[in-house]
Design a protein around this nucleic acid. Structure first.
Ligand code: ZN
Ligand code: ZN
Length: 376
DNA sequence: TCGAACGTAAAT
DNA sequence: ATTTACGTTCGA
């Protein structure tokens, strides 16, 4: 899957059986926002949203363009301290994924999410049953907290105006899904509440199930791969597994909750991480770490092969010469065992034509914390 | 497909 | 805290 210019490039995880939450979220937001003309300042709920995604690498070829990335000591971090606008995040995310705003893209995403509704469904069915306003509860503070400061706090945007998108896909629907899952914190400042809000992932299930009943089309899109065969393995079939357990907190809470992320894993010191680990492991795209042995970490050199026994760097190979940036052991010392791909010979059982390389998102939130991330 | 760069786990 | 170096990403 490469660039497709005006068409779409699919996040690799969309092809995997369990797309990452990030992509689910991204899709929701993308689908909702890319079709919307922003005629008024973003409502508070959007502009203040904390985005629980780990998608914070610079988009290809667009280094440093997005302020949701902060740099510290030469390293990039998610700007979790700030509250970059949701809008900006979506723009960023789309750029990072090189996602073009096409229907194909949406359809593929939906299909692979096992959420059997196509984008077109949403477009025609703007979540009628849900009264989001009740959930959102726009406060007085809302109007002043609009996105950038450059526009004066004009009268509060009327909700219908704001939430109705030309496509018919309600922003409210997206926001609601996210909020039910605790993925969208209304008032990030009060971490307590946000955490509590995470509990309410229950209703999300009903939501999703409900939606599932719709049973969708999923055709069209000549270019993209069709739907994803349900590889079983208990495919979520709805958002519950994603939203319920994966990222129930806003990123601001991660440090508090003792979460640590890295290498695509994350674990919790606060709660029994057993189940979570399992879920997360499943989140890997096939062929990645932990797909098998339930979350293996870095392998270690065998210590016995010839390269392993070598004790000095050659100082000539590319690894040696490029040690500063390459971070690789001398080519003549590289363990034979580690040269083998994990998973052995059968490893190439990947969907042809798709890049299923490892999990997408890595981010050192722990680092961020240790760096004193609580500033702007 | 490959090498460079990177993030960070694990070792020290 | 610093160093080593694995696994992943990225661009050519
Ligand atoms: Zn060397
Ligand atoms: Zn070895």
């Amino acid at each position: 899957m490469e660039d497709i210019g005006t068409k779409a490039v699919y996040c690799r995880c969309w092809k995997s059986k369990k797309p990452s939450v990030c992509c689910v979220v991204l899709w929701i937001l993308w689908a909702a926002l890319t079709t919307v003309r922003l005629r008024s300042p973003l409502p508070r709920i959007l502009s203040d949203a904390q985005i629980p995604c780990r998608v914070f690498a610079d988009p290809p070829g667009r280094r440093g363009e997005f302020d949701c990335i902060s740099k510290r000591k030469g390293r990039r971090f998610a700007n979790t301290s700030g509250r970059f606008s949701l809008f900006r995040f979506v723009a960023f995310s789309c750029a990072q994924r090189r996602v073009a705003a096409t229907t194909d893209c949406g359809q593929l995403a939906v299909a692979s999410v096992e959420h059997r509704l196509s984008l077109s469904h949403y477009i025609s069915t703007p979540s009628p049953a849900v009264d989001v306003k009740g959930l959102i509860q726009p406060s007085q503070a809302q109007q002043r907290a609009a996105q950038p400061a450059h526009t004066k706090p004009r009268r509060a945007p009327s909700w219908p105006d704001m939430w109705e998108s030309p496509s018919g896909l309600h922003l409210a629907h997206a926001a609601e899904l996210l909020m039910l899952a605790g993925l969208l914190a209304l008032t990030p400042a009060t971490t307590e509440q946000a955490s509590l809000g995470a509990q309410s992932s229950q209703p999300a299930k009903r939501e999703a199930a409900e939606a599932k009943g719709g049973k969708g089309d999923g055709e069209g899109s000549g270019s993209g791969p069709e739907e994803e065969e349900e590889d079983s393995s208990g495919c979520g079939t709805d958002f519950q597994p994603f939203l319920g357990a994966w990222f129930p907190f806003s990123p601001a809470l991660f440090p508090l909750a003792g979460f640590q992320m890295g290498g695509g894993h994350w674990r919790s010191a606060a709660m029994g991480a057993e189940g979570i680990e399992g879920l997360v492991a499943e989140g890997y795209s096939p062929g990645s770490l932990g797909a098998s042995s339930g979350g293996r970490r870095k392998r270690k050199r065998c210590g016995e092969c010839v390269p392993c026994r070598r004790q000095t760097n050659c100082e000539q190979c590319s690894s040696c010469r490029n040690r500063k940036r390459g971070h690789q052991i001398c080519k003549y010392r590289k363990c034979e065992e580690l040269k083998r791909k994990p998973g052995g010979p059968g490893f190439e059982s990947r969907v042809s034509g798709f890049d299923l390389r490892g999990s997408d998102f890595t981010l050192g939130l722990a680092q961020e914390r240790s760096n004193g991330a609580l500033d702007g």
